[in-house]
Amino acid sequence: MTFWDWVVRLLQEYWPTFLWGAGTTLLMAVVGTIIGFLIGLLVAIVRTIPVSKSDPLLKRGVLKVLRGIFMVYIEVFRSTPMMVQAMVIYYGVFASLSSDYVLWVGMFVISINTGAYMSEIVRGGVISIDPGQTEGAQSIGMTHWQTMVHVVLPQAIRNILPSVGNEFVVNIKDSSVLSVITVSEVFFAMRMAAGAYVRFFEASVIACVIYFVMTFTVTRILRYIERRMDGPENYVIHGSQTVPAAELTVRQDLEGGEK
């Protein structure tokens, strides 16, 4: 049998496994990226809370502890491979659970792992925004939370969208390491199909194509979202300051000459 014959045969017999695997991979990547992104936003908001020496001791203490926890979290999860994190968390924390929960464990691992990277990405985005934006918001009495949610983060998110998209793409591919805790994503499906006939080359080519199609589609969608967020270049000027009479004439025309 030729290469193509094997590809066709593997697809005929294992297409439901591959399809299920692709779905699982996408689920892992989407959930991991979204929750990781939310973690990143939250960490960034807390880390940027201004502290002044007139603040109560309790507030300063709590913030200091929180910042310490965040720092440990970020460093630990960025400095160890996700594959190892998955095994430690699955066998250490969730060992007593039945294997039905493996999907949840997978989503948990990829989310907190992504959260650690996102925290740094969002921090970079926040730093890139002119401090004048924060001062403008503070000067009209907005709280730190309001300033971040309405002024700083919307601008920061636009700037970091390429990096967030990058994380998404990385997650689609790196979710393959979750196969070590038997999450049945694309890589897991590939090994099943390959093992049945010992055709590793053909099966891995199929997996490659599936990964490529998924990441390429996601990249296009993200690019589209970026363009949408930039908004229109044009704006409408209402009325005319220089010739008020002109506006009046137009309005009378529109109202249908009742006079």
Partner: peptide, 18 residues
């Protein structure tokens, strides 16, 4: 509340760009 009562106009405007 205090800052809402005491507004500020900046040299660099600091309008919200978004």
């Amino acid at each position: 509340k205090y800052r809402a009562k005491v507004g500020m106009v900046f040299q660099q405007f600091n309008l919200f760009n978004n």
